[in-house]
Design a protein around this nucleic acid. Structure first.
Length: 421
RNA sequence: GGGAGCGUGGCGCAGCUGGUUAGCGCACCAGGUUGUGGUCCUGGGGGUCGCGGGUUCGAGUCCCGUCGCUCCUCCCA
């Protein structure tokens, strides 16, 4: 038996139906916000990703040499591809550019709950603008996407890495040491940071200010305690606009610090508290990546949603909706009626309804049983008596109620009954 | 990279200290039922007990190894 590769999943029809609904709802929100879809390759030259995230990620990617001896990687994320696409082919488009994507990504990691080697992301990038309203627009889009999925319990945190960066760069003279400090803050490794402070004879006072800042979170009222005047003003405007867009309940969290250099200011995360260990369902922020890929410096703000985790969070908080893949299942009462059954089925399908018909030459009794277990909302009984009157019987599989309808109007009648629920 | 738990028909499981033809529930297929499912009855198909080795007269059961799954830690683009 061939096994499924580690960390990958098969999705059956019922699960795909739920996933597609969530994905569709999010896409719809993206379109409403004026974002257009892009699709980029599933694999890229691996350099694209090491440029963005550093050499160390090579161990966590699926890398391979193609037949022309080029080093390729299955994409571990999609932002890098979108920015590559922008730099090489869309940089002369009118700004701002609003792009979104949905796709599978691959990371060679140890699988666990909410973490897979193949996973799915929906993300958006707003390219060419840098100001509070731009960031607010992107956060608002992100929050609306999550809301559209149906998830109730989620938590939005917004931070600004400029506050921490300016504090560290201002107080630590050696830029190499400053970089180390920032990375340690990112990893919340304050023990190691303390040791390094001692080794470089940096003041205990600065250490305390950094840890305090990393711990600063709360409502907009804590904005007043931000001692970086520029960031303070920026965040004030950002939160104001968010509120006007109906996005409240956003926590300010100055502890969100990304170690990577291209993050410029605002950073944000959303988690679903019900998920436990892997509870982050979305991450984003503003950055400048384009010059890394050989373009001019262009500011962008973007985010990516972990669709798999959103699905897990939805499962954790709500009953799964019943899967009814068929509006009608057509049942001939006897062999002589089978050909009519196909004609009726075709008639129903052509009206856009989901219909199926017996292909196993089963008895009527078994067919009704099958119709129920296959999740058909109605059975359409095609029998001799009805056909004599050019009619068929519709049977509501929930109530058992039956109605005789003219064969020519099956689909219309079904539509009417379906709309009643 | 470190740790924990688990591998027996499609799914969920039982199988006591080793003992003869490996079971149960659900699901699937058929018949009872040549015009009525979500009741019932009967029958049927489907398992090299994850894999390899060892101990033994005999291994699903004990020992060693190995692979896989799940979760935690770690890491996070």
């Amino acid at each position: 038996m061939i096994q499924r590769p580690r960390g990958t999943r098969d999705f059956g029809p019922a699960e795909m139906s739920r996933r597609r609904k969530v994905e569709e709802a999010m896409r719809e929100i993206c379109h409403r916000f004026g974002f257009g879809e892009v699709v980029t390759p599933t694999f890229e030259q691996s350099e694209l990703f090491t440029l963005r995230s550093g050499q160390s990620i090579i161990d966590e990617m699926y890398v391979f040499k193609d037949k022309g001896d080029r080093e390729m990687a299955l994409r571990p994320e999609i932002t890098a591809s979108v920015i590559r696409f922008f730099v090489s082919e869309m940089s002369n488009q009118p700004k701002p550019l609003k792009l979104y994507y949905v796709g599978n990504c691959f990371r060679y990691e140890n699988p666990q709950s909410g973490r897979y080697r193949e996973f799915f992301q929906l993300g958006a990038e707003l390219i060419g603008s840098e100001n509070p309203e731009t960031d607010a627009e992107v956060i608002s889009l992100a929050v609306h996407c999550i809301r559209a999925s149906g998830l109730q319990d989620f938590h939005v945190r917004v931070g600004h890495i400029g506050v921490m960066k300016s504090l560290v760069l201002r107080e630590v003279q050696d830029p190499v040491v400053a970089g180390k400090v920032l990375r340690m803050v990112d990893k919340e490794d304050f023990d190691a940071m303390g040791d390094m402070f001692d080794a470089n004879s940096l003041s205990r006072n600065l250490f305390d200010r950094i840890t305090t800042l990393a711990d600063t979170r709360g409502g907009t009222e804590i904005l007043d305690s931000v001692d970086d005047a520029e960031a303070q003003q920026y965040l004030k405007e950002l939160f104001e606009i968010l509120k006007l867009q109906g996005v409240e309940d956003v926590e300010l969290d100055l502890g969100i610090v990304r170690g990577l250099d291209y993050y410029t200011g605002m950073v944000f995360e959303i988690d679903a508290p019900k998920l436990g260990a892997e509870k982050q369902i979305l991450g984003g922020g503003s950055y400048t990546l384009s010059e890394l890929f050989g373009g001019e410096a262009v500011f962008s703000t973007g985010f990516a949603i972990g669709i798999d985790r959103v699905m897990l969070a939805l499962e954790a908080e709500q009953e799964q909706p019943e899967y009814t893949p068929l509006d009608a299942y057509v049942v001939p009462t006897e062999d002589a009626m089978r050909k009519y059954a196909f004609a009726i089925t075709s008639k129903i399908r052509s009206k856009g309804l989901r219909a199926d018909v017996d292909l196993m030459r089963r008895s009527m009794s078994k067919n009704l049983k099958y119709a129920a277990s296959a999740g058909a909302r109605f059975a359409v009984i095609v029998g001799k008596e009805e056909m004599a009157k050019r009619s068929v019987t519709l049977r509501d599989m929930k109530s058992g109620e039956q109605t005789l309808v003219p064969a020519d109007f099956v689909a219309d009648e079904l539509e009417k009954l379906l709309s009643k629920g």
